[in-house]
Design a binder for these strands. Structure first.
Length: 434
RNA sequence: UCCGCGAUAGCUCAAUGGUAGAGCAUGCGGCUGUUAACCGCAGGGUUGCAGGUUCGAGUCCUGCUCGCGGAGCCA
């Protein structure tokens, strides 16, 4: 049996009446004496095999007794449409092949605490809920790559080890780098993506990013994935056009191809169906007005906190773009609004239902002298940014881009209450294992 | 770093300051359509750690460790 022709659970419906062989792990088993049910999980789904005493040799019938939860085994038998079976199909078992008997499996088919499961993340990934989440994550990432690919973007990945802070704000993970002193794990690939945009016009980078902040919330990981497009000859409006088209593409792809998974997750997709262009665009000032109207004591000039973002996003039935923030709360490389130099040409996209900021972007400062002044104002070491300043010395153009956090996007689309379930092996302040 | 909550069987939890228990899991037995199957029996505990109050502490007090949620920071 070649890999190509192997039958997997997700395809058994195409083999009704045929004798097939499935390979997988025991999800659960049930018995009523002379009739026995084996539930096999093979990574694509779960199907039940049924054996009646006398319909198979006794030695095959008795292998049921040896199989423990998560034991690896093969099932041979004829596929039958059966409404009483989970999934609608079942296997009339003719043979059972045991590959390995599992030790007592710690994750029983019942409720467990988060800590217990997190300690066994390598096993937890086998459960149907985690399986559904990872399948959605995969589809989101494929949609991201397809989106940029279809629009002529070039993938240009940025380095993970960097000589200095990209934005000079957050705490970074530090390591020794041979004889060259300290290196830092990247917190953003954006500056390198800008170099890419000047070389290729439209690029994106997509990789892990690291923040050593001691954040302890349901929205933070110390290692997370971010996709960052960067486009030459683009302003803030172009950036927002790209972001809304991007979000619509991702969400609609998942709705179309991951209906089953969203059902497993019991996700109410009402808000997701609404994610279609155009998305509402409001200014920072208008967002502040919303907060004031809702009785929030908010001072102009601050950045929004988690609860502020929730209140703002609750006013809309789809993600909302908030643009033109006070420059003081944004990064040094963001261009100022020519009509009001106190404002940065920045945009944050806030997801509905309290999921917060999933995209942060801006038009970049393209003037050499202004950018040097910003670096000085932020007290950043100019020599570390000389290569970045070169981008303004040699053919500078208006350009813009944004970053989308994968884990927050997965949490939002799946309707999860914590990002720790959105990545196979989460890294958090108090968790480095497994 | 700050604020709040928590830790009891392998797991999820219960137990007015007075004999530490249930469900699930595991083992054994039963059941010819099970759906986190069901029914019966059995084994399973240094109540996170250290100290204190008390005739008596899982329960009250102090300290510590670990975890969870939130703030700040951010995607």
């Amino acid at each position: 049996m070649s890999l190509i022709n192997r039958v997997y659970v997700e395809n058994v419906g195409a083999h009704v009446g045929e004798e097939v062989e499935l390979r997988g792990w025991l999800y659960n088993k049930r018995s009523s004496g002379k009739i026995r049910f084996l539930l096999m999980r093979d990574g694509t789904g779960i199907v039940q095999g049924v054996m009646v005493k006398g319909s198979v040799p006794d030695e095959v019938f008795e292998r049921f007794d040896a199989l423990t939860q998560e034991s690896a085994f093969g099932l041979k038998g004829k596929v039958r449409k059966e409404d009483r079976a989970p999934g609608g199909y079942e296997l009339e078992v003719s043979d059972v092949v045991i590959y390995s008997i599992a030790h007592e499996y710690p994750i029983a088919p019942k409720e467990h605490g988060v800590e217990f499961l997190a300690d066994r993340r390598h096993l937890w990934l086998r459960s149907s809920r985690q399986h559904a989440i990872m399948r959605v994550r995969h589809r989101i990432i494929k949609a991201i790559r397809d989106f940029f690919d279809e629009r002529g973007f070039t993938l240009l990945d940025s380095p993970i080890l960097t000589p200095a802070a990209c934005e000079g704000t957050t705490t970074l993970f530090e390591t020794e780098y041979f004889d060259l002193g300290k290196a830092y794990l990247t917190q953003s690939g954006q500056l390198y993506a800008e170099a890419g945009a000047m070389a290729f016009g439209k690029v994106y980078c997509f990789g892990p990013t690291f923040r050593a902040e001691k954040s302890k919330t349901r929205r933070h990981l110390s290692e997370f994935w971010m996709v960052e497009p960067e486009v030459a000859f683009a302003d803030l409006n172009d950036d927002m056009d790209l972001a809304e088209e991007f979000l619509e593409y991702i969400v609609q792809s998942v709705l179309r191809d991951r209906e089953r998974e969203l059902k497993v997750l019991e996700r109410n997709t009402t808000f997701l169906q609404n994610v279609k262009c155009p998305l509402p665009r409001i200014t920072y000032d208008e967002a502040v007005e919303i907060l004031k109207r809702k009785g929030v004591a908010f001072e102009w000039g601050n950045d929004f906190g988690g609860t502020d973002e929730t209140i703002i996003s609750e006013q809309f039935d789809r993600p909302v773009m908030v643009h033109r923030y006070p420059a003081q709360v944004k990064a040094f490389y963001m261009k100022r609004d020519p009509e009001n130099p106190n404002l940065a040409l920045a945009v944050d996209v806030l997801a509905p239902e309290g999921y917060g900021e999933i995209i942060g972007g801006s038009q970049r400062e393209d003037d050499l002298d202004t950018l040097i002044r910003r670096i000085q104002e932020h007290q950043l070491p100019q020599e570390a940014f000389e290569w970045y300043l070169d981008l303004r010395r040699y053919g500078t153009v208006p350009h813009a881009g944004f970053g989308l956090g994968i884990e927050r996007t997965v949490a939002w689309i799946c309707g999860l209450d914590h990002v720790r379930e959105t990545i196979p092996f989460p890294r958090m302040i108090y968790r480095l294992t497994p």
